[in-house]
Computed example of a mutant assay.
Amino acid sequence: MKKTFQLIATAAAGLEAVVGREIRELGIECQVENGRVRFEGDIESIIQTNLWLRSADRIKIIVGMFPAKTFEELFQGVFALDWENYLPLGAKFPISKAKCVKSKLHNEPSVQAISKKAIVKKLQRYYARPEGVPLMENGPEFKIEVSILKDMVTIMIDTTGSSLFKRGYRIDKGGAPIKENMAAAILLLSNWYPDKPLIDPTCGSGTFCIEAALIGKNIAPGLYRSFAFEDWTWVEKDQVQKARAEARAQMKQDVQLDISGSDLDARMIEIARNNAEEAGVADSILFKQMRLQDLHTDKINGVIISNPPYGERLLDDSAVTKLYQEMGETFAPLQTWSKFILTSDEAFESKYGSSADKKRKLYNGTLKVDLYQYFGQRVKRQLRE
């Protein structure tokens, strides 16, 4: 098997730099590109990035890249790749996805079929199996993806399985929850640190609060879930168990966090508590049923993070306008607090009553949203007495 791999971490548009920073913090050099971060690594790197990246979607191996304008060139390019270094005899290898953009080859089902045929032929030759006799595919699964952009083919294997946002703690959710990896990315983009108070006044199923607690306690986001690569014969089980054991040893269970979430809906608060319990952080978060307008605090230098309901999600326009006005009035007295508010409403600032210090364009799924950032006045904490 290969010792090193060309790898990419995929990311939602606007979050690539956050993913790049996380990868560098793991001690891995990387290049940030549109929608992904490219890096090189070994099996250990595959394990660590899946286990620890909070803001990425998936980790994929790049098997190879080559130009192709015809199906014959596609077949020969796929056939030439070193599949024997990835796919053991008996492996399942569905071509799970083909995506063609601005390319001569644009029939995606045909791209899938021809890529599959080329891999089958290569493996039949390598494992000395007669042509015409189907390969048995009853072993571990390697999901293969084919991407063709401007006639350049990239062939990848997904190491992750279910997307990295699926941490495994979400028992239930509300009408329009934010994905866990996007919530984590926004926390990493904010000026919140675990020694600061954090409030989510529209907490829904509790995602921001739970992700903050996972960051504060240094709990690896992938610790309690499994990954596709764990079934692969060339990934040592001992190596995965060792990485998980090391991640457990790095948890800071005794750290004191000041994280609270509130919501008007009592049912959502119950869901948030259950999710926090499942994530192992229930003791670090105070959830409370409360109207947003009733938010008051004497604490200083805190951070408010909110993903309020907006037009495309849950509320009609008049209710959204009223909610944003109430937000502006309620948050205004909290002058030392920074506020980070995610919404697709382009008229947010006028409804809220003040212009953001900074605005960042992101995508919540396919929906374009903005993260409005208001930075609090800095006050030394000892002046509090």
Results as ranks from 00 to 15, higher is better:
Thr4Asp: 15
Ala17Phe: 00
Ala17Leu: 01
Ala17Gln: 02
Ile23Leu: 15
Leu26His: 07
Ile28His: 10
Ile28Glu: 09
Ile28Phe: 10
Glu29Phe: 15
Glu33Leu: 13
Arg38Ser: 13
Gly41Pro: 07
Ile43Gly: 02
Ser45Gln: 14
Ile46Arg: 03
Leu51Lys: 06
Trp52Thr: 09
Trp52Cys: 15
Ile61Leu: 03
Ile62Glu: 05
Gly64Tyr: 10
Pro67Phe: 09
Thr70Val: 09
Phe71Gln: 04
Phe75Arg: 07
Gln76Lys: 07
Val78Ile: 15
Val78Ala: 05
Lys102His: 06
Leu105Ala: 06
His106Cys: 11
His106Ala: 12
Ala113Lys: 06
Ala113Asn: 01
Ala118Met: 08
Arg125Asn: 06
Arg125Ile: 03
Arg129Asp: 11
Pro140Met: 12
Pro140Asn: 12
Glu141Asp: 11
Lys143Asp: 15
Glu145Gln: 14
Val146Phe: 14
Val153Gly: 03
Thr154Asn: 00
Asp158His: 05
Ser163Val: 04
Leu164Lys: 13
Leu164Ser: 11
Lys166Ala: 14
Gly174Ile: 12
Ala176Trp: 06
Lys179Phe: 00
Ala185Met: 06
Pro194Leu: 12
Asp195Ile: 13
Ile199Gly: 04
Gly204Gln: 01
Ser205Arg: 01
Gly206Phe: 06
Ile210Gly: 07
Leu214Phe: 14
Ile215Gly: 11
Gly216Phe: 00
Lys217Glu: 05
Lys217Ile: 03
Tyr224Gln: 05
Glu230Val: 01
Trp232Phe: 09
Trp234Leu: 00
Asp238His: 11
Arg244Ser: 06
Arg244Phe: 14
Arg244Thr: 04
Ser260Pro: 00
Asp263Arg: 01
Leu264Gln: 15
Asp265Ile: 02
Arg267Ala: 05
Met268Thr: 06
Asn275Met: 04
Glu277Phe: 04
Val281Leu: 11
Val281His: 10
Ala282Pro: 07
Gln293Ile: 02
Leu295Gly: 01
His296Leu: 05
Lys299Cys: 12
Ile300Phe: 08
Ile300Arg: 10
Ile300Val: 11
Asn301Lys: 06
Arg313Trp: 09
Leu315Arg: 05
Lys322Ile: 01
Tyr324Leu: 00
Tyr324Ala: 00
Gln325Trp: 07
Thr330Tyr: 03
Thr336Tyr: 13
Trp337Tyr: 07
Trp337Val: 07
Ser338Pro: 13
Lys339Met: 13
Phe340Pro: 00
Glu346Met: 11
Ala347Met: 11
Glu349Tyr: 02
Tyr352Ala: 03
Tyr352Asp: 04
Ser355Gln: 14
Asp357Gly: 05
Lys361Arg: 14
Thr366Ser: 15
Gly376Val: 10
Gly376Gln: 09
Leu383Pro: 00
Leu383Arg: 09
